[in-house]
């Protein structure tokens, strides 16, 4: 890898460096946010916040965390992940449909 980057022109090297720095910044930021979310979640449970507030908040935090994980740490925001996204959202849709059925038709 090292000798490959040496063969690249200087401006390209700088561009890549900048990209990497940007990437690093995003990763650190999302990591910090995820830890913060976890503290908030635990905090709310420890301080016994009202459950009507706590449940939807926890779900929202969880969804955001999963999105961070997928898009920033597992690179779904980068190019070439269209098929992955289609399959994952397809699976989520089918699973959601099943849950909606069970809660609305079977167990109402």
């Amino acid at each position: 890898m090292a000798d490959q980057s040496h063969s690249k022109p200087v401006h390209h090297q700088e561009y890549e460096k900048k990209q990497h720095r940007e990437e690093m910044k995003q990763q650190v930021l999302t990591f910090a946010l995820m830890i913060l979310f976890t503290f908030i979640a635990f905090g709310m449970v420890i301080f016994e916040v009202d459950s009507y507030f706590i449940i939807p908040t926890l779900i929202i935090l969880a969804v955001v965390q999963v999105a961070f994980q997928l898009y920033y740490f597992m690179h779904m925001k980068n190019k070439g992940h269209d098929m992955v996204a289609v399959m994952m959202y397809g699976g989520v849709a089918v699973a959601a449909l099943t849950i909606i059925t069970f809660t609305s038709i079977i167990w109402w």
């Binding site: 449909l97 069970f102 038709i105």
Partner: peptide, 12 residues
Amino acid sequence: GNAIIWEHLFWI
């Protein structure tokens, strides 16, 4: 339990 669960799972 609920026998209808099988029907739904089977047809899903």
